[in-house]
Design a binder for these strands. Structure first.
Lengths: 215, 215
DNA sequence: CAATCAACGCACTAACTAGTTACTTTATAT
DNA sequence: ATATAAAGTAACTAGTTAGTGCGTTGATTG
């Protein structure tokens, strides 16, 4: 946090900054190539650090991956908490949540790839994480409260499971983006063209609204 | 196809059978570990073949992966074609399609992992494939025709894009299963318990019906 | 039955990769 | 200033890994 010399000799010793550069480089490399495909040497180079530093601050490649993954989850959960859905009527709040999810995945494609990689490894790194549960619970109850409020307002159907809804909102946005390469070939259309993205978002909002709203 | 000796000495020379064993072993290994994580030696061993044979029949690890991927797509597309949705009224046909998709992913988890791995590699192997397009077109028109028929029957909404619907049906089923490990931790429930699977299928059918059907 | 060709397998290599050893450089506390 | 601990680096190691060279074995055909 403290600026250690803005003067003559530029890059000096700074443990915190080095760790941050390593984390950033690791996130990029893990996202691009998965845990198995990522190269520690590449991370070191990209971080403008030495490979030894990675093993100094993080004990192994896997530990580094775990840290990156935790940070990725912590980032999305904290962004969700800033949504302030309770300031809006239930319908608008739900739409806002869908729009947010879409935009978040679009702006942070590493999140998707990291999660895919973690699932390939049967979530063995996430299992070790403590803070995941606290963050997740808050997220689920946020949606749960929104659903309850919508029912009270008389606009949402009753009896919808917040977890199923969460999964579905994630699914329709996530799947489209994670499978954008094979999808573009299979459906012979560029799924990442601006109009295509617009169209998908509209479709997804419609899907969720029809699922949740009365009539 | 011809049974070369069912008599005394069991496993003799059989090019076709060896190739099939290699393909099967490769599918398993690629699905379990992705293209990068898969080991050619493991494939050879699992196939009860020699590594040399892999390079004899398939020119490289990547070519083998491409063949496995093509076969996986060809398998699901051909299973879809056997559905005979036109024998049912539109609503039942749509439900049948959702049920089929769910069950197919559940019974063939390798398909999901292979597709994930291919997307990590930006679909570079699928790009080279010729027959993908023919199969995909037939699939899209199958759903397109179903939608048209439902509109004529007066049960489906008009103007739904078959591609968007296809993607959504795949998404809500695929996402739940591919992210079952992280999902089970994040939501603190075993997403693969029989009741959970049942519940998810019901929810997914509801989602699609509400999206497509009138009122 | 001899010759030919395809199926098969051992043992190697060249390149790579996670992790380490042993060292130098810099900030800081006395 | 200077001792000390932390930050940083280069070069190495031990183990893997995709891919091959070359020889053997068995089926087929004239």
């Amino acid at each position: 946090m403290e600026d250690t010399k803005t003067s003559p000799k530029p890059r000096v010793r700074d443990a915190e900054a080095t760790q941050k550069r390593i984390m950033a480089a690791a996130k990029k490399e893990f996202a691009r190539n998965g845990l198995g495909g990522a190269r520690v040497d590449v991370i070191a180079e990209q971080a403008k650090a030495n490979k030894r530093m990675i093993y100094h601050y993080f004990e192994s490649k896997e530990t580094l991956f775990q840290r990156v993954l935790e940070e990725a989850y912590s980032d999305i959960r904290s962004a969700e908490q800033k949504l302030q859905l309770d300031h809006l009527d239930a319908r608008s709040a739900l739409e806002k949540l869908v729009r947010f999810t879409w935009k978040y995945y679009l702006d942070n494609p590493e999140f998707i790839t990291l999660v895919n990689s973690e699932n390939l490894h049967k979530a063995k790194h996430l299992k070790k994480s403590e803070l995941i549960h606290t963050m997740s619970r808050r997220f689920v109850s946020m949606v749960g409260e929104l659903l309850e409020r919508g029912v009270k307002e008389g606009v949402f159907r009753d009896g919808i499971d917040p977890v199923q809804l969460n999964i579905t909102i994630a699914a329709i946005n996530y799947y489209y983006l994670t499978n954008r390469f094979t999808g573009s070939i299979v459906f012979e259309r560029n799924l990442m063209a601006p109009e295509a993205l617009e169209e998908r978002l509209t479709f997804n909002i419609e899907t969720i609204m029809r699922l949740v709203c009365k009539d």
